[in-house]
Amino acid sequence: MNLGPLEIGLIILAILLLFGYKKLPDASRSLGRSLRIFKGEMKGMKDDDVRGKDAARTTVRGEIVPPTPADSDLTAQLHEEARVAEARAAELRARAEQSRAADGTR
């Protein structure tokens, strides 16, 4: 599909009629910002994906790769948070049992 000079001119004329000449600079600025944000987010997702693949790779040619200090710190932190959450859940279950027992004796 080839666009000739007449088709391009008609497209530009239609855009000018739709948006007006005063709003075109603002619209193009907004489009540029949106594209810049989108590009930055895509780069961030790509970087996260690469980091995730590196962290998930625990063996290389059958040899275990030791975790980095940052990975072990994060793992320790997550284990601690899980332990605290389990303790809190057990405490809430015990309170619920006590209140059920107290309601049954009345």
Rank of each mutant, 00 (worst) to 15 (best):
M1T: 12
N2I: 15
L6E: 15
G9Y: 09
G9S: 05
I11P: 00
I11L: 03
A14Q: 05
A14T: 03
A14E: 06
I15N: 00
L17Y: 10
G20P: 01
Y21R: 09
Y21I: 05
K22I: 01
K22F: 02
K22H: 03
K22V: 01
P25S: 04
A27C: 08
R29C: 09
R29K: 12
L31E: 13
L31T: 15
S34C: 07
S34T: 11
L35S: 10
R36Q: 11
R36S: 10
F38E: 12
F38D: 10
K39D: 07
E41G: 01
E41D: 06
M42Y: 13
M42Q: 15
M42G: 07
K43Y: 07
G44A: 08
M45D: 13
D47I: 12
R51T: 04
G52F: 02
K53V: 01
A55S: 11
A56E: 04
T59H: 02
V60G: 00
V60N: 01
R61N: 07
R61T: 02
G62K: 00
E63V: 03
E63N: 03
I64E: 11
I64C: 01
I64D: 05
V65A: 08
V65I: 14
P66N: 03
P67H: 11
T68A: 13
P69W: 09
S72Q: 11
D73T: 15
D73K: 15
L74C: 14
T75I: 05
A76T: 02
Q77V: 03
L78Q: 03
L78D: 02
L78E: 05
H79I: 01
H79N: 06
E80H: 09
E81G: 00
A82N: 04
A82T: 04
A82E: 08
V84T: 11
A85K: 06
E86T: 11
R88Y: 14
A90T: 06
L92K: 13
R93G: 02
A94V: 05
A94R: 14
R95M: 13
R95Y: 14
R95P: 02
R95N: 12
A96N: 06
E97V: 08
A101W: 15
D103N: 10
D103W: 12
D103M: 10
